[in-house]
Design a protein around this nucleic acid. Structure first.
Lengths: 232, 232
DNA sequence: TGTATTTTTCTTGTCGACAAATAAAATGCA
DNA sequence: TGCATTTTATTTGTCGACAAGAAAAATACA
């Protein structure tokens, strides 16, 4: 509830970004449930600004598929399409491979500093059993690898996939609390090593294996839930 | 100049889409040159509506990277980044492969009808030597193949790449008027056949070859221009 | 009581106006 | 004349208000 208590003064143009960033995080952290309605007026009151900048932020979020807008009617947080999760996984695995591969090929020394930073943040969050931070830093870690590959088209799609993945992993850890795989930290380390060694094929292989391990784990959970649904 | 003379009456909500679509086409057909400034007020007068819907259309175009907005300053058509064309080609070739492959795997009979439609439109435009239509229907043809693959993530990125490709091909044909490759029509036909036969590997191979042929041809031109630039 | 129609309420899409930020022009000064 | 500073002009970002559309509520009617 203490969102914008601090500064009633904002710089011109910063409002949109603020609303966009905050709403985006709330959606990706599942603080707003998929399907929830989004009320422009309510947001305007909350951020103490007019509906115009709110609307612009919403248009941008809609452009990234994070919210859906029914003309003349409501706008709501995009629901997760469980029926077509496989398309998501297909795209995710391919982008893991491509970005890791390109990073091995095109990275510069300074990229590795950033990547290692997120790697350590992830390990720390894992030890602290802090799901939210784990998920966010994991996404940041792989996004940083993609950036090191220096292909904005791949980076753009991959970011979108990682975002969607944040919501799915959030769901995952909510229903499956026990599992905190140290294994993923080790795999991250191996990926960094392959990138640094500029071993493209190895980076590709590790990226693929890493992605498929995550996908398999998530699929295991959801298939279990599927069976449950049928049983009920 | 006779853009919106006809209907001064528009339906609520249609204005944004209209401006968006028209501006998008003008950008992709190079009717507005990259780097050109975009004036909100001017557009508002031209379409006889207030700046609000214009602005929303611009925000969406910016979201797709077709225009660039400098805060508090001007907004202009995105320039083509010739220095990093290779990232574009990398992404394009991969998406050609992936989408053709997936189409061979997942298409339904009705998809082929649509694909064949664009195929014929393309052949017709080629015979008529109508560049603009050629380029647009070529993009539509491959977008239709992507749709048949039924992976919205790939389709989304591919559409973006095909859009950007429209601008580049436009440039290409402007400076290199002679070449109207019948070859591409034949390759399209071969791709359709592979998709229909559900021959995934062949579709992949043909998609890759087709993409690389186009890339090679465009690169040949631009490398020639590069040399010219150096000579001057 | 149940269904069709009207009325009301609520949300969105659009508008015109104003204010902040920047660029351009004008002025001052050496 | 050349440069720094002030003034003006232009353009963007934000605001409050209003009207169109759709959903919900209320009413009429069988």
């Amino acid at each position: 509830m203490t969102d914008t208590d601090s500064l009633p003064e904002r710089k011109r143009g910063s409002g949109v970004k603020m609303v966009y960033d905050l709403l985006r995080d709330e959606i990706l952290d599942l603080k707003i449930a998929p399907g929830s309605p989004i009320d422009e007026v309510q947001l305007a009151e909350r951020f103490k600004m007019s509906r115009t900048p709110i609307r612009e932020a919403l248009v941008r979020l809609a452009g990234e598929g994070l919210i859906e807008t029914l003309p003349n009617r409501s706008t709501m947080v995009s629901s997760i399409d469980f029926m077509n999760l496989h398309t998501f996984f297909d795209a995710l695995v391919l982008m893991y491979r491509v970005t890791t591969r390109l990073a091995a090929q095109s990275h510069r020394p300074e990229d590795l500093v950033i990547i290692r930073g997120f790697h350590e943040d992830y390990a720390t969050a894992l030890k602290a059993r802090d799901h939210l931070t784990m998920i966010a830093t994991n996404a940041a870690f792989h996004a940083a690898i993609a950036e090191a590959g220096r292909n904005p088209y791949f980076t753009g799609l991959f970011r979108r996939l990682l975002d969607e993945g944040r919501r799915i992993l959030q769901l995952y850890y909510q229903s499956y609390e026990e599992h905190f795989p140290q294994r993923f930290v080790d795999e991250h380390a191996a990926i960094i090593a392959a990138i640094e060694a500029r071993d493209i094929e190895e980076a590709d292989r590790l990226g693929k294996a890493h992605a498929e391990a995550i996908v398999a784990q998530v699929q295991k959970l959801f298939s279990r839930n599927d069976r449950l649904d049928i049983a009920l």
